[in-house]
């Protein structure tokens, strides 16, 4: 499987931004500061269990169900 990390990031950002481009941008920056470099992940990136767990944890902290 591939691309799950990107899909989770996109879902988290979309859920938080609700279509607001400014909030989408700041949410991506928040992820960077938490140690998730969004631009490192593509649709073909291998599913990294460690990163998937980290995104789940961050989503929980941010109150987002993914």
């Amino acid at each position: 499987m591939a691309g799950q990390v990107l899909r989770m990031i996109d879902k988290l950002v979309e859920a938080r931004a609700k279509g607001n481009a400014t909030v989408a941008s700041t949410t991506r920056t928040k992820l960077l500061l938490k140690g998730i470099k969004v631009t490192n992940w593509t649709a073909t990136s291998p599913d990294d269990p460690e990163m998937i767990a980290k995104i789940r944890e961050v989503a929980k902290e941010m109150g987002v169900a993914i």
Binding site: V23, T26, M62, G63
Partner: peptide, 11 residues
């Protein structure tokens, strides 16, 4: 700052 960012979308 991290917790503020978790809880609010304001800058």
């Amino acid at each position: 700052m991290e917790r503020l960012g978790d809880l609010s979308d304001l800058r």
